[in-house]
Design a protein around this nucleic acid. Structure first.
Length: 827
RNA sequence: GCGCUGAUAGAGAAAUGGUAAACUCACCUCGCUUAGAACGAGGAGCUUGCGGGUUCGAGUCCCGCUCGGCGUACCA
């Protein structure tokens, strides 16, 4: 339908047209400011500043080739908080580096015949350009830290040697986890459900001689999280991994000598009716009667071949073989049969247990299967199903001198007895094993050890470090490190005797690299020492460390261990690397599924930035929900944030149409301080989504207020300036552009955060809700300092309330300050 | 099995025990008719997974249940 506007309106529109503000164009504004910030170096951290420090490393990325949306989520959001802390007056270090050693480079090299170093360095170069588009306050000098640089891994080797000298690094032969796809051994922490964490291959057991770090020396201390603000989830996961069990070791007499078991329930010994050894237990042979030999050998063979998955499969029926021998229960004197079974692990405790079926579900199953005696030694509750083992607390029965004691008392009494009689002793066992760090791979830190026929293992002297990773490796599927093929490199002279020596040809697990890099950031170019102790002591522990939950055990446990070892070497004066830890969630695809190429739901941040600009992408990622929760990607939501920034742009820079409304000044001040309080507190608490919502509410209010009498007043200008500052950490580019267009000189990012004024949040009056029996029946304006009695009187005076209360008995009257009155009546 | 965690309009997501519920997107109406996958004005939509309980008052606290996510699992 065609319409004809009156000519006067047309003219008015035409004038407006002329004055119309150019639309916000992030593609012009954002790169311009990034260039300015870089050239004026405004994000350089002064490590010697007298301001209070705030150290905020994030788990540094692996140079896989591309920054994905998860990287944006992990790095751009902490950047907002880093910027906020900076505006709050802290000297903030927000570093970045690259975790550059690792298998993907080597696998890419094998597949495409590229040098892993070239692949890695070119990825780093490209990812750095991508990083810069994120508009962060990263101090780029720290990206000197690339773990594959000899200047970095030299210090891995240095630490290795120092730890070696202190007995923290040692080589031992043991059954290790062999990944047949990646052709290397793995640490226990890298085996998930019996499979390699990277390759997914079923892990095999191999007996090999490998280098270990003695993390078990710190098992007890690693259980202590005092002073750390870490999520319960991570603390529980680490605690379970370390797996401390307090109990006792007890000797049982057998024809082959004392058989030692570990138990957490020494109070149940009187109920021990059989023994079980792991199939690999060293005493098996001696305890096997000749007529049982064949059966035992067969069982051992099956157990050896079975993977851990098969051995520990859910609901697996108990199996085992009676060895033909018996042991003597040290307290009852009874002879009890000795079995082997794969439910007992040779790697835990003593590799042997006493079977107490009445108080242990596994032993119960085993006893039922083999028809063994079951003796209750803890009184079961009255309504207990007698066809089940009882693991709970109760009074000891059938247990001689323990009878009548509860479980805790009985344990103590029995452990005292064991120690007095010499039949056993108190013992604490950990599930945690020493950290296996050898890898039969090329792309890692060479292990600085030389083997000499005369001198044995000889650490490479400090002055000869680094042991450089040789160039031009050959990758052959030999199951040995590629370094073994490089004869020239491998053969050397023994530093001790000068004779012929051979280098260790394995490289270190790359979790070694990431165990201390956050200290190196404070002096990444240091050629004299691994770290600058003075700066590290000043800046560490990190105030806030963030990254994915997948490192809850691996990296975070190793980093804590390394820190404690460094402390004990006297390098640093604290024992925990990260005071506060937070794990971001995962950004899912539009379909609420994990992003993957095969699902075709991958969101490419580069495309988004091309379309909307950096600020919009950052804002959207923060607005999507709580940061630790992650969430699905909603393409239309991004558009919403882009539009909001457009409205904010207009709010600041466009002249208002006309003044129509009258808004009290007090409302403006309330709005701005309300938002300021919310944004300050929420940013502090990492609640970016609600912080942005508060800014949206503010901008909605200001949009209205702009067409009121408030426009152009001093208070109006202060309000806008305050809003501009609040926006700066969240949308750094547009905030900077607005800052300059509204007449400011100097970067908004060098400004201070405004403190909110609580007095502006106090109103003289409030809208008092009046309820009768909990239902809203009226509302009235009331003075904020109203007393209870006055509030009730005021409420009762309301016409629509009278109807509900008159002639009825009042049961109760409640006044909630500044909110409501509830009158409870009866009848 | 155990531990942690979640369930609020079509989607995402707020809410110190206090007005049956922010904010954004999507949707509807009107205006503008081109700053256009824009802008302005307005509107509709959730009795907060289910069942009990505590309370003057419950999305919020307690008990039970259902469904989902994450972790862990013969560790003696």
């Amino acid at each position: 339908m065609a319409r004809q506007a009156p000519s006067t309106v047309s003219e008015e529109l035409m004038t407006e047209e002329k004055n119309r503000l150019e639309k916000y164009n992030p593609h012009e504004v954002e790169p311009r400011w990034r260039a300015t910030w870089e050239s004026s170096n405004i994000y350089k951290t002064d490590l010697h500043s007298s301001k209070p420090k705030h150290y905020m490393p994030t788990m540094f990325p692996y140079p896989s080739g591309n920054l994905h949306i998860g990287h944006w989520y992990a790095f751009s959001i902490p950047d907002t908080r880093a910027r906020f802390m900076r505006m709050q007056g802290f000297e903030v270090l927000f570093p970045m580096g690259f975790d550059a050693f690792g298998l993907p480079a080597e696998n890419a090299a094998i597949k495409n015949n590229i040098d892993p170093a070239k692949w890695t360095y070119s990825n780093i170069e490209y990812m750095t350009t991508q990083f810069k588009r994120m508009g962060t306050m990263i101090d780029w000098e720290t990206t000197e830290l690339k773990t594959c640089d000899p200047e970095y891994y030299k210090w891995n080797q240095w630490f290795f040697v120092q730890f070696y000298k202190r007995g923290l690094t040692y080589k031992k032969e043991s059954f290790v986890n062999w990944d047949p796809v990646d052709n290397t051994v793995l640490a226990n922490e890298q085996v998930i459900d019996g499979r390699g964490d990277r390759s997914g291959a079923l892990i095999e057991r191999r007996l090999m001689s490998q280098w270990h770090m003695k993390i078990t020396d710190y098992a007890e201390e690693l259980l202590n999280f005092d002073g750390l603000e870490w999520s319960e989830k991570v603390r529980v996961m680490q605690t379970n991994w370390i797996g401390k069990s307090v109990g006792a070791e007890v000797d049982f007499a057998t024809p082959a000598g004392a058989l030692r078991v570990f138990t957490t329930r020494p109070d149940t010994i009187f109920g021990a009716t059989f023994m079980v050894l792991a199939p690999e237990h060293p005493m098996v042979a001696a305890l096997t009667k000749p007529e049982k030999l064949e059966e035992v050998t067969a069982y051992q063979a099956v157990a050896k071949l079975a993977s851990d998955i098969d051995r520990t499969a859910e609901g697996k029926e108990k199996t085992g073989v009676f060895l033909g021998s018996t042991a003597s229960n040290p307290f009852t004197g009874k002879e009890i049969p000795i079995f082997i079974s794969d439910y007992v692990l040779v790697t835990y405790g003593t590799g042997s247990i006493m079977g107490v079926p009445a108080q242990d579900a596994r032993d119960w199953d085993f006893a039922k299967k083999f028809n063994l005696e079951i003796i209750r030694t803890v009184q079961t509750p009255a309504d207990w199903d007698e066809n089940k083992p009882f693991m709970g607390d109760g009074v000891a029965i059938n247990s001689d001198f323990l009878n009548g004691l509860n479980v805790t008392e009985a344990k103590t009494r029995m452990m005292d007895e064991l120690e007095q009689t010499g039949k056993g002793n108190r013992k604490t066992t950990f599930r945690l094993r020493d950290w296996l760090i050898s890898r039969q791979r090329y792309w890692g830190t060479p292990i600085p050890i030389i083997y000499c026929d005369k001198c044995g293992q000889v650490p490479v002297p400090e002055e000869d470090l680094p042991v450089l990773l040789p160039e031009n490796p050959q990758f052959l599927p030999t199951g040995q490190s590629p370094l073994t093929l490089l004869e020239d490199w491998k053969n050397c002279t023994c530093p001790k005797c000068g004779g012929a020596g051979v280098r260790d040809t394995d490289t270190m697990d790359c979790f070694v690299d990431s165990s201390w890099y956050f200290y190196r950031f404070l002096d990444p170019k240091n050629t004299q020492s691994a770290i600058n102790s003075e700066l590290v002591n000043k800046w560490s522990p990190a105030d806030w460390y963030t990254g994915g939950i997948e490192h809850a055990i691996l990296h975070l446990l190793y980093a804590r261990f390394w820190t404690k070892a460094m402390r004990d070497m006297g390098l640093i004066n604290f024992g925990e690397p990260f005071t506060r830890l937070m794990n971001q969630g995962i950004i899912l695809g539009e379909d609420n599924e994990k992003m993957s190429k095969s699902r075709g739901n991958v969101i490419d941040p580069d495309n988004l930035v091309d379309e909307y600009g950096t600020d919009t992408v950052r804002l959207y990622l923060q607005f999507i929900g709580p940061w630790d929760q992650g969430g699905p990607w909603a393409p239309k939501g991004v558009n919403g944030l882009a539009n909001w920034l457009g409205r904010v742009w207009n709010l600041f820079l466009e002249s208002p149409d006309k003044t129509t409304e009258n808004i009290p000044l007090i409302d403006l001040e309330y709005a701005i301080h309300y938002a300021l309080k919310k944004v300050t507190e929420d940013t502090e608490a990492f609640k970016f989504n609600t912080s942005i919502a508060a800014m949206m509410e503010l901008s909605n209010f200001l949009g209205k207020a702009k067409r009121s009498n408030l426009y152009g007043t001093t208070e109006w200008n202060i309000a806008l300036e305050t809003f501009n500052l609040m926006l700066a950490p969240y949308a750094p580019h547009i905030a900077e552009e607005i800052w300059h267009r509204t007449g400011h000189i100097g970067s908004v990012h060098l400004e201070s955060w405004r403190a909110f004024d609580p007095s502006k949040l106090v109103k003289d009056t409030f809208e008092m809700v009046v309820q009768v029996n909990g239902k809203v029946r009226g509302k009235t304006e009331a003075p904020s300092n109203i007393t209870d009695a006055e509030a009730f009187a005021l409420a009762r005076g309301l016409e629509n309330i009278r109807g509900h209360v008159e002639g009825k008995e009042t049961v109760k009257e409640i006044y909630i300050k500044g909110r409501l009155v509830n009158i409870v009546v009866k009848g």
